[in-house]
Amino acid sequence: MNIFRFLGDISHLLAIIILLMKIWKTRSCAGISGKSQILFAVVFTTRYLDLVTNFISFYNTSMKVVYIACSYATVWLIYSKFKATYDGNHDTFRVEFLVVPTAVLAFLVNHDFTPLEILWTFSIYLESVAILPQLFMVSKTGEAETITSHYLFALGIYRTLYLFNWIWRYQQEGFFDLIAIVAGLVQTILYCDFFYLYITKVLKGKKLSLPA
């Protein structure tokens, strides 16, 4: 465990909690893509199946359990508890365009052709693009609440920190996982435009709004 990875995990956890708290406190999921949240629930479920097959550490197990539980809680808040506030009309990204190609790619490019490994690989590929319905929604409505921007920033910076973690691990342990690295790079690149808007607007106290 190095500092980049730890901060990455904390940032990921923070993002998930910010979103949950935002929905809970405002009793509304306006501006949040339910589709992205379903994709994240799928990502965690397919990646953490090893919870039942091998134990790594107390930290590892508890973080996995929290991520899974929070992602399902978020989906439940959006599609059940605060369903009336869900902005489905603007959440129109076609998720099959993400799920099908990443599933096919997981079958073709993986470390080992076994069910658990393919599902893990699928989760890595899917995670890299799972935010697209949310970013699409922001670009469609042309704005995002400040708290939603904080959520997106924390979520984006998490994988960026993991990139530094992988550089560190390669240097220190000779460890590298090309699948995770390439997907992590793609994931980070998808956030770049948002990072720019976040730094130039949100951090200066302005609401994130896109030019019409």
């Binding site: 990875r5 080992d112 893990w120 993991y162 973690n165 590298f176 996982d177 699948i179």
Partner: peptide, 10 residues
């Protein structure tokens, strides 16, 4: 060398 992931990351 090419290392298969040890899956200790989240």
């Amino acid at each position: 060398h090419y290392l298969v992931t040890t899956k200790d990351e989240l």
